[in-house]
Write a protein that binds this DNA or RNA. Structure first.
Lengths: 240, 240
DNA sequence: TAGTGGTCTAGACCACGTG
DNA sequence: ACGTGGTCTAGACCACTAC
């Protein structure tokens, strides 16, 4: 088979394949660069270039002297990469999650489109209230394609030992790699106002997040409502 | 002088210095990699690694077969990197800017802190209304440290041939490299409501943006109010 | 001490854009 | 044809981690 593009892109693709197959699990080290170079019969610099890109995409993590590891979802990573709500002043806080409801439903047209499934396909709907500094600040409405999360039950969701994304990864092999978010200002309806302890009609920040795994495949749709009276959404583009 | 870290970091620093001095101007090509390697008496791979980082920070732009160029601000770059308001559906649009007011003032305490100047230092205050698809969608309140923009007048601001950031770069050598933004939901006051043609008390998206140049030095503070009825803020983190 | 990733070299050749 | 950035090699040595 002829090689289309650069060699290192091909190596990257092969590494991704092994990762997708789950052969190297989250948190584990992948083989040393020298070993990979031998295995593929190429120069170490080419292996490094392939790994460089995967590191840049937060799929692998290099640690000098130790090895290269498959990125795993823990609290720190959540806070750093995926949780964008910060106090007006002071350090970031980790949110406390309280489950409000858990159920099954059929996908609406727009949700199906975003998740790249068919309208009417089974989805899981999860609703959480997130608290920061002890007070509820945010309501999350999660929609999951049921096919990707077989056997996910309310009990299992409740019993997760760490973050939600960690559950996806550990229990279903679904690694969220990046997200894309759309924001707008809305007014609180009766339900949201009650849950957040604010007046009906108060302004709320609505976040529509699509979470993606390898190859930009969508795996979760999440609509959040945030009370930005004391917290804000922080976006740092092109950080070095 | 002893070399502290890696050689390529030092090369990067030297390249940044030349850029900061304005020796290589925006839009121009920098010397070829082979020439730089000769000049510094190092290997070409090391030069490439230094340039790699500057490219990753959107300071330089590589073009195979042509050369490596100093990133310059034009409409396309604005739209792609710095303008995050998109239609609910359909392609991104370029905003039409209308100047509402232009004046001088003394820096407030919080603004001074963010801009890393002293309270009371001279600042320029510029207010614009931005339209998308023919209707006003956004109000921008810009605060500039006057010291960085000597001789910027209302006429000069009005006469700019391209984007605002292009003006900063071409006329004052201030290259905005990245921004950091904080968002919240607020309600429209009387003035904003009138300018945006909406009801007083309607929800608006407030964006507090700090624009940074080389070495993360702040150069502009901008507070925007966005009517997100038909448009949204789009944030794509960690795109490859 | 052994093994890992990080840096650096000196070159060859390829792909692309321009004249 | 020439000059540019892009890829790839084969190796040396350094910096760090773990034992």
């Amino acid at each position: 088979m002829p090689l289309a593009g650069p060699l290192y892109k091909d190596v990257k693709r092969q590494l991704m394949e092994v990762l997708t197959r789950g052969e190297w699990k989250a948190g584990e080290a992948i083989p040393a660069e020298r070993r990979l170079a031998e295995r593929y019969g190429i120069s170490i610099g080419t292996v490094r270039k392939a790994i460089d890109e995967l590191v840049g995409e937060n799929i692998l993590i290099r640690q000098q002297g130790r090895g290269t590891y498959v990125a795993s979802h823990n609290r720190d990573r959540l806070l750093f990469y995926f949780f964008h709500i910060v106090p007006e002043q002071g350090p970031k806080e980790y949110p406390q999650v309280r489950l409000l409801s858990f159920g099954r439903a059929k996908a609406e047209r727009t949700a199906a489109e975003r998740l790249q499934i068919e309208p009417g396909d089974a989805v899981l709907r999860i609703r959480n209230a997130l608290s920061l500094g002890g007070t509820p600040v945010m309501i999350d409405d999660i929609t999951l394609p049921a096919a990707r999360f077989p056997g996910l039950t309310e009990r299992r969701f409740r019993a997760r030992p760490s973050t939600i994304y960690n559950l996806y990864q550990e229990a279903f092999g679904v690694s969220v790699v990046r997200t894309s978010e759309r924001l707008r200002a809305v007014v609180a309806d009766e339900e949201a106002a009650a849950l957040l302890g604010i007046a009906q009609g108060a302004p709320l920040l609505q976040i529509r997040r699509l979470a993606l795994t390898y190859n930009d495949a969508p795996v979760e749709l999440r609509i959040s409502l945030v009370n930005t009276a004391r917290y804000e959404y922080f976006s740092d583009i092109g950080r070095s």
